[in-house]
Design a binder for these strands. Structure first.
Lengths: 162, 162
DNA sequence: CAGTATTAGTTATGAACTATAATCATTATA
DNA sequence: TATAATGATTATAGTTCATAACTAATACTG
């Protein structure tokens, strides 16, 4: 607190109180500012929820898409998730070493790998999806179904505009 | 983003076609997935818009809050923006070296610095806000005023729940 | 068909961002 | 006065993100 309060009851100091008194009206007009803050909440909670499963968000998303798209190639996956190919490699190394995916050569194009999830991979993916649902149910519990729907729609529109 | 040059015989192969055929219905049920993708769009555009001004998003947000909260301290600013104090230091070093903010000792607490924006800092902040508005007007142009309002409300609710 | 270009995956690497521990000076507390 | 706590800083390491260069295989062009 910049204003030195009169030395009253010592214990009663104005604490940061977690809800800061800092004015951010200017930034509050921007969707990006709100979105970063809201996403931070979702991301940090999901990260915690996935950690006991041995997954991080990027490995989880990758595994999820492999489960849903058996035989997908690395570059397709990288494109879909907007991850650079070199970074995709280490993510898949991780998933492969844990026995959750297989990389098998494509017969018709021996440069490429077809990615498939193992049974264990499908199982852990299911658990991760459940954890994700639980996390979002918790963090979006104050949004009505309709609000949630409109939120997703708006986000989708922004994504497609870019 | 490598676009294959259009050739006559192009019809033989199924091209990635930029709009991927990858199924992501499972991830699409999650707000976090949509939010990350939408925020990526906003973030990368804003980063480009701020770059000619010599600002990055974090330095811009910091400068903005300093302009709006003259005399704010570093730790208050760090708390408001959810930035670790050590990382705040280098951001403020940058802003100070460019002559956009001043750090002056607080008389009543000589450990702390009171941060204020210089005239040049206020000017560049105005420009940055204008650039930000232009960016968002472009990227949210397909959202009606009402949709935009509901989006901000929903994001705010999520942030506060966390 | 030969030679070139392109593509899939990889390696190496560096930049940017984030997080933690330790330190110094100052202020608060017991 | 001694001890604890705070604001800012330094050093440092982990994490994420991006780029260039390389290999092997395929596609394209003359």
């Amino acid at each position: 607190m910049s204003n030195s309060s009169p030395t009253a009851a010592a214990a009663t100091r104005i604490e940061p109180s977690s809800d800061s008194h800092v004015r951010d009206a200017s930034l509050r007009q921007f969707a990006g500012y709100h979105m970063k803050r809201a996403y931070n909440v979702l991301r940090s909670d999901l990260t915690k929820c996935l950690e006991p499963l041995g997954l991080r968000i990027t490995t989880y998303s990758s595994l999820n898409l492999i489960v849903e798209n058996p035989g997908i190639r690395q570059s397709e996956l990288a494109l879909a998730l907007d991850i650079e190919r070199p970074n995709m490699v280490v993510i898949l190394d991780d998933l492969e070493q844990r026995g959750w995916i297989d990389r098998r050569r494509v017969e018709t194009d021996r440069r490429a790998y077809a990615l498939t999830a193992t049974l264990a991979g499908k199982r852990v993916c299911e658990k991760a999806v459940a954890a994700d649902l639980a996390s979002e149910n918790r963090l979006l519990r104050h949004l009505k179904t309709e609000e949630k729907k409109l939120l997703l729609m708006a986000l989708k529109k922004i994504e497609q505009t870019g």
